[in-house]
Simulated scan of single mutants.
Amino acid sequence: MQTYKISINDAKKLFTQLNCDKGGINILSKKAKLHTLYIKQMHVGAANILKQDALSIGADLAVPTGVITAKEKYVDGILLGTTKHFELLARKELAQPFGLKDLAKSLKEYIKENNYKTKIMGVLNANEDSFFKDSRFCSKQASQKIESMIEDGANIIDIGAVSSRPGSLPVEPKVELERLKDIVDTIYENKYYEKVDFSIDSYEPLVIDYVLNKGFKIVNDITGLANDEVCKISASYNAQVVIMHMQNDPKVMQENPEYENIILDLDAYFKNQIQKAKSFGINDIVLDVGIGFGKTLEHNLTLLNDLEHFKHFGYELLIGASRKSMIDMITPSSIEQRLPGTLAIHLESIKNGASIIRCHDVKEHHQAIKVQEAINSIN
């Protein structure tokens, strides 16, 4: 008899290779993946009930000392268990008091499987102050660059005319549109939108309305739908909307950003903005945690490591860490030297749940992602 350790990243494939019973594969898969879920401000009664229910099925709830004697009325906790455990608890807690019914619904959403194909969003900038000069293009160069990006494997091309790098200043909407107009018209006239989806990196209603009328399908809003007019216009065109998180604005966002708990703070933010989007009739939503937008290096690393948490909303997750300064903080490097670090972050993000990768280097990402997919297909 021989034993060796295996990766359980794709349990279903491994169980299939063993020729397990088809009905049992789904059951086994649910037992193979471990989840950790932070629960904030539980009633102490809920904590005690959930602790006992979790232990009874082989899961567990980490709680502060003193919960058993109800020392504090409300406590935080960390629930640990497999997909199967969460599935059982989602049923058990439906009949329990102290807010556990709502928790049961959250658990059900958290373990819902949403498997999206990985897409590459290539970056094309029509401004002179974008932090990476190789992503800047004028209207005359746009056609050649767009065709090149499509050939290199882009699924989406994200076009912007205003820099959002730390310290950057806003631009008048008319100036932004003037920078974009020739490129957008070229896309429309050549029907490039039939070959690839186009996204507008803007939060200005004037700009968004113009491009959506010219074949663009996605609104990439770094303000996360702060402007009601953007909501109205996006809904009228039935556009997909990227809701990104940013603390403050680009001018001051990196001046000592602070969070009580970055995962929970962003979770609450996304919950509110999703509700807002739906109230305007927007249902095609993508979430972006906003790497580098009002975050320290530790904040960014925490978000990347715990990215899977945000899958419970049921929407695609976008990550854009292309050549950002967090790489320089880890290993000193110029913007032009950060492609390896970018690929490392983005490949790890895919493993943790991201399905849209926003990047400057489409060809290199396409190759890296295809190799990653080939490795994973063996499991």
Rank of each mutant, 00 (worst) to 15 (best):
R323M: 01
A126W: 01
V196D: 06
A70Q: 14
D185I: 11
A374L: 10
V252K: 14
N48H: 05
I285G: 06
L264H: 10
I68C: 01
R358A: 07
L61D: 11
S236F: 01
Q372M: 07
A11L: 01
I156Q: 04
L212W: 04
I274Y: 04
I369W: 00
T186I: 03
L225M: 07
G353W: 02
V286T: 13
I159P: 13
A32I: 05
L317T: 08
K370P: 05
A32C: 11
M326C: 13
F198G: 01
E113R: 08
L94S: 06
I345L: 14
S322V: 10
H309I: 09
N48M: 04
V371P: 03
I25L: 08
D284G: 08
A59R: 10
A226S: 15
D158Y: 02
P170D: 05
A344K: 04
Q2L: 10
V211N: 08
D152Q: 14
I187V: 15
D134F: 03
E316S: 11
L347K: 03
Y193V: 01
A161G: 15
H245A: 00
H85E: 02
P173N: 06
A344F: 04
N220D: 03
S135W: 07
A126L: 14
V242C: 15
Q337A: 12
I187A: 05
V289H: 05
K324N: 08
K191L: 02
K33C: 05
V123S: 08
E336Y: 09
G281M: 04
T223Q: 01
K191I: 00
K363L: 09
A235N: 00
G45C: 00
E93Y: 02
P332W: 12
L180T: 10
Y110M: 03
D306S: 12
Y116K: 01
I356Q: 00
L347Y: 01
I222C: 05
H360S: 08
L100F: 00
E172M: 10
A374T: 11
M246G: 01
D102F: 06
H312K: 15
I157L: 13
I350G: 00
A142H: 11
L107A: 12
Q273E: 01
N305V: 00
K40I: 12
I200F: 09
R338Y: 14
K31T: 09
Y74A: 06
G224V: 00
G292D: 06
M42C: 12
L347F: 03
K73W: 08
Q96W: 08
K117Q: 13
E255H: 11
A95N: 13
C359K: 03
S163C: 06
I357G: 09
N283C: 09
Y269Q: 02
Y38D: 14
M149S: 11
H309G: 07
I218W: 12
K12T: 10
I6A: 07
Y4C: 07
R358H: 09
D201H: 10
F310T: 10
Q2V: 07
I183R: 08
Q17H: 13
N261L: 04
E260P: 04
K271M: 12
T82F: 03
D185S: 11
A142V: 09
V175H: 05
Q2C: 06
I157R: 05
I291H: 07
D284C: 08
N248L: 12
K40S: 15
